[in-house]
């Protein structure tokens, strides 16, 4: 029997997954805005802005959904997280503010070059930093130093040590390159010209190499920093299967990129990120926050969980058609943006 708490945890992971695929790519887009170079730099930037424009706020709500489910269904976990990870979460918020507003201001402010560049730079820097912080938070809840027992401990033991480790930073870097990879792959599909497609093809392949390196680094550092996570990653049969599938996806997306089969590359890239996330989720199970807080002991009132499930289910009935409609309306626009 699966109980309500587990369903809700799964829904949170699904939301996080969608956030990574959609919102993550928006961050990645910002990264490529920063690294837009060469004579097509301007086209590259416009491509990114056109793809992010209509939907970043909608993509962003997936993160809010995760937070809301967390505090409604697992209030103890939300509370613990907010205390021990106060510092990275606050920085994450600052990043979210800077990114969202700079992107919008850029669009509605004067279209003079220096004004555009100023907003563009803030947008891009924030896009670079925010995913790292997101990764740090994910790293911190996996590595097992977040403790509710704060009596008699120093400031740094309670508020810094749980996240300020090489492992967490490696996870942060991993999140950043994954998001950049996604954005580059998506852009190969959206790019209106062959030259632009090639620009992003190169970027995607570069990012894929970086993903492999950082994945390895995370894995190595986990040995020492997050032994619990590492053990369940390395010693369970499902995990080997999942890792195999992830590797297959990664190889397929790379090959598809090489062969300029961009739609296929997008499919496999999304699959790759999804499998990584679910691999992490399964390895983390049954913990929400290692080492003490499990799905079971973090949960709040059962009545709330049931109602939440009902609300989410009926909300989904409303939401998915709307999302589908949004994507359908803008498919044309996204596939060939910018006809200014």
């Amino acid at each position: 029997m699966i109980d309500a708490a587990l369903y809700l945890a799964i829904i949170m992971l699904i939301s996080l997954n969608i956030y990574a695929l959609l919102g993550g790519a928006d961050y990645g887009g910002g990264v490529w805005d920063l690294f837009a170079v060469g004579k097509r730099a301007k086209e590259q930037r416009e491509l990114i802005a056109g793809a992010i424009g209509p939907i970043w706020e909608a993509n962003h709500v997936w993160l809010i959904l995760v937070v809301v489910i967390l505090f409604s269904a697992f209030p103890a976990a939300f509370s613990l997280l907010s205390i021990s990870l106060h510092v990275p979460l606050t920085l994450l918020l600052l990043g979210i503010i800077a990114r969202g507003t700079a992107f919008t201001f850029r669009k509605y402010d004067s279209h003079k070059d220096h004004v555009q560049r100023r907003w563009g730079r803030i947008f891009a820097m924030a896009s670079l930093i925010t995913p790292v912080l997101l990764g740090i938070v994910v790293g911190a809840i996996s590595q097992g130093k977040v403790s509710a027992d704060i009596a008699g401990k120093t400031f740094s033991q309670v508020y810094i040590d749980p996240w300020c480790t090489p492992f967490c930073f490696a996870v942060g870097g991993f999140a950043l390159v994954l998001f950049s990879f996604l954005a580059a792959v998506y852009s190969t599909v959206y790019a209106p010209t062959e030259e632009l497609k090639t620009d992003f093809q190169r970027r995607a392949l570069g990012a894929q190499v970086a993903c492999a390196i950082l994945a390895l680094l995370v894995f190595i550092l986990a040995e020492h920093s997050a032994p619990g996570l590492k053990d369940s990653l390395a010693h369970s049969s499902w995990s080997l299967l999942l890792q195999g599938a992830t590797a297959a996806c990664a190889i397929s997306s790379s090959i598809a990129l090489f062969k300029r089969k961009f739609h296929a590359a997008r499919f496999f890239a999304a699959g790759q990120v999804t499998l990584i996330l679910w691999g992490w989720g399964l390895a983390q199970y049954p913990y929400m926050i290692r080492p003490d807080m499990t799905i079971n002991n973090a949960q709040g009132a059962a009545s709330t969980q049931t109602l939440l499930l009902a609300a989410i289910a009926s909300g989904a009935l409303l939401l998915f058609p709307s999302f589908y409609f949004l994507l359908k309306v803008f498919k044309h626009k996204i596939d060939q943006p910018i006809n200014k």
């Binding site: 209509p54 939907i55 706020e57 909608a58 962003h60 709500v61 809010i64 959904l65 809301v68 489910i69 505090f71 409604s72 269904a73 209030p75 103890a76 939300f78 509370s79 613990l80 907010s82 205390i83 709040g300 009132a301 709330t304 109602l307 939440l308 609300a311 989410i312 909300g315 409303l318 939401l319 709307s322 999302f323 409609f325 949004l326 803008f330």
Partner: peptide, 30 residues
């Protein structure tokens, strides 16, 4: 954090419903 630990389960539902309102608002504003 102590307030949310205490009350998260009680007022979480309206916040979750609000989440859906945000979704539809953002989607259709797009």
């Amino acid at each position: 954090p102590e307030f949310m630990k205490w009350a998260g389960s009680i007022i979480g539902l309206p916040f979750a419903l609000e989440g859906y309102a945000f979704f539809t608002e953002a989607i259709f504003l797009g």
